[in-house]
Amino acid sequence: MRKTARTPAGEYLTGIIMDLFRLNGGLLTSGDRLVAGLGLTSARWQMLGAIASAQQPQPVAWIARDLGANRQNVQRIVNDLAQDGLVRFEANPHHRRAQLVVLTDDGRQAFNAAMKLQGPWVNRLSDGLTVKEIEAAHRVIMTLQANLEGMAQTDDVD
């Protein structure tokens, strides 16, 4: 099997990708601890946030697309949230089977409570970083995301 040589940028990015995997794990663990007292996990909090920030109620497939997540995983979490009374399903006038997901009052309260905890947490997390550094990191992340989406559309990963 022949190994394809990496460009200098590809070589450095490989290390950063490993760091991002570790960062993601740390963020999830820290988020779980942050919202545990509210009966939430990072995954449930993320789902409530996606639903709360949508311009209008959306079906699970759209939520999954917006999160870049697997529809089946999103469906499982949404079902759990519905069972706990944090979201409910409503009829979708555009699609008979793809119901819309809507926050309940309890769901909105849980999300708002999580966001109150998030403020001090994210401020502490950003210690030592300038807004310019964070903006630069954001630009890099968004470029990588756009490149991934472009590769997925063309199935070109070589």
Rank of each mutant, 00 (worst) to 15 (best):
Met1Pro: 13
Met1Glu: 12
Thr4Cys: 14
Ala5Ile: 13
Ala5Asp: 14
Arg6Met: 10
Arg6Phe: 10
Pro8Glu: 08
Ala9Met: 12
Gly10Pro: 01
Tyr12Gly: 13
Tyr12Val: 11
Leu13Val: 08
Leu13Arg: 12
Thr14Glu: 13
Ile17Phe: 08
Ile17Tyr: 09
Leu20Pro: 06
Leu20Cys: 11
Phe21Cys: 04
Gly25Ser: 05
Gly26Ile: 04
Gly26Asn: 14
Leu27Val: 12
Leu28Arg: 05
Ser30Pro: 02
Asp32Lys: 02
Leu34Asp: 01
Ala36Met: 12
Leu40Gly: 06
Leu40Ile: 02
Thr41Tyr: 01
Ser42Asn: 09
Arg44Gln: 14
Trp45Lys: 05
Met47Leu: 15
Ile51Thr: 09
Ile51Cys: 02
Ile51Gln: 03
Gln56Thr: 15
Gln56Met: 13
Pro57Tyr: 12
Gln58Arg: 13
Gln58Gly: 05
Pro59Asn: 15
Pro59Gly: 11
Val60Arg: 07
Ala61Glu: 11
Ile63Tyr: 07
Ala64Ser: 04
Asp66Ser: 14
Gly68Met: 07
Arg76Leu: 00
Arg76Ile: 03
Ile77Pro: 01
Leu81Asn: 03
Ala82Leu: 05
Gln83Phe: 03
Gln83Glu: 09
Asp84Arg: 07
Arg88Asp: 00
Asn92Phe: 09
His95Ala: 13
His95Ile: 08
His95Glu: 07
Arg97Ile: 13
Val101Thr: 14
Leu103Glu: 02
Thr104Gln: 04
Arg108Asn: 04
Arg108Asp: 03
Ala110Gly: 03
Ala114Arg: 02
Lys116Thr: 09
Leu117Phe: 03
Leu117Cys: 04
Gln118His: 00
Gly119His: 08
Val122Pro: 06
Val122Arg: 02
Asn123Ser: 12
Leu125Gly: 08
Ser126Met: 11
Gly128Asn: 10
Thr130Ala: 09
Thr130Glu: 01
Val131Met: 09
Val131Gly: 12
Ala137Pro: 07
His138Ser: 15
Thr143Val: 13
Thr143Pro: 02
Gln145Ala: 15
Asn147Met: 15
Asn147Tyr: 15
Leu148Lys: 00
Gly150Ile: 00
Thr154Cys: 04
Thr154Asn: 03
Asp156Lys: 14
